[in-house]
Design a protein around this nucleic acid. Structure first.
Lengths: 182, 182
DNA sequence: CACAATACGGAGACTGTCTCCGTTTTAGCA
DNA sequence: TGCTAAAACGGAGACAGTCTCCGTATTGTG
């Protein structure tokens, strides 16, 4: 990659991070280009779709989400507390930019999406947590990690969409009770 | 309301029902106007926002949702089965038009939304089901009807957004297990 | 330093939203 | 029935966002 290209790539990404945080993932891409000091053509060459741009920003999170999963397992807390903590961290990450959660929900089961791979990384992180639960015999039979992931992303999505800023905890408690063995 | 106004109002609504079903609630409103044989001005006079149009279409469902809730209670089935059935019906209704579920999620906690009142009607229907569960002692303590509603709408939203057409049942089973007393 | 390859950027085509206002339709009344 | 004021129509067009094309500029390599 040529030096000027790399420079612009980074500028666009940094600007997108700011704008997406300020105004959500539906902000105007042309405006991001303008604020980054590049032409729209340049933005679209580097990131052909909005999803591709969101995806590039997600790199940081997937790492953190992965780390959080392992950290949650390592705490050694009882199943309910561990799960609650993990879910809350997960939701915090994927709602960092308004609108991102529902994009992730959509990409999760769509292998054609540029974000699919990153969703898998997060899915794997979640699977480790659920598997750990299973090994310690705390998992209710029939619970599938992929569905847990969908369910928690759904909660994130609701919280993100909701105008009131909602406490996700009570919803997560229901989910957790449905996951851990009675 | 003048006769021509009523005629156009009905034509727009009928067309919107078709287009929203075919292509989801994000279809072009100008196109709906065109297919209904009216000018865009007419559409926007009757329905100032897209939400207002979705809201008008929702009238049918809220009635059916309400009826379904009472029917579920009347079945006399055990708590788990009754809840599962109710949730599935509810989701069927609110995912009738692609994109509607997430609009409902958003409107649910936004009193300024034109759809807010209808969401309340559905919320009340759900509350009746949950209250019934509570009376028969099947409700896990601390479970709140509003959060159940949010949770299930979240599932609907995930299913609706998902490209693969997803079976909601396994997710609902987790939710149900989190709701009924162990 | 030259020149091929690479990247830039902005004009503009296109699509969708929404409004304004001149024209048409309606309903009530003589 | 014919007249009139009020109500409603509809489409031109302003505006905003997406995305592309291609003439111009920058880069790095021989």
């Amino acid at each position: 990659m040529r030096a000027d290209a790399r420079r612009n790539y980074d500028k666009i990404l940094a600007t997108a991070r700011i704008v997406f945080t300020e105004r959500g993932t539906d902000s105007s891409l042309d405006e991001i280009a303008k604020r980054a000091g590049v032409g729209p053509g340049t933005l679209y060459r580097h990131f052909p779709t909005r999803e591709a741009l969101v995806d590039a920003l997600m790199q940081d999170w997937t790492d953190r989400v992965s780390a959080d999963a392992d950290a949650a397992i390592a705490t050694g807390l009882p199943a309910r507390e561990m799960l609650l903590g993990w879910f809350e961290h997960f939701i915090d990450h994927i709602t960092l930019h308004r609108g991102a959660a529902s994009k992730i929900c959509a990409a999760m089961d769509d292998p054609a999406s540029p974000m699919y791979r990153k969703c898998r990384v997060m899915g794997d992180a979640n699977r480790r947590v659920i598997d750990h639960l299973d090994e310690s015999g705390d998992l209710r039979p029939g619970v599938d990690a992929a569905n847990v992931m969908r369910l928690v992303s759904g909660v994130a999505s609701v919280a993100d969409t909701s105008h009131a800023d909602l406490d996700v905890r009570p919803m997560l408690e229901v989910v957790v009770d449905g996951i851990v063995r009675a």
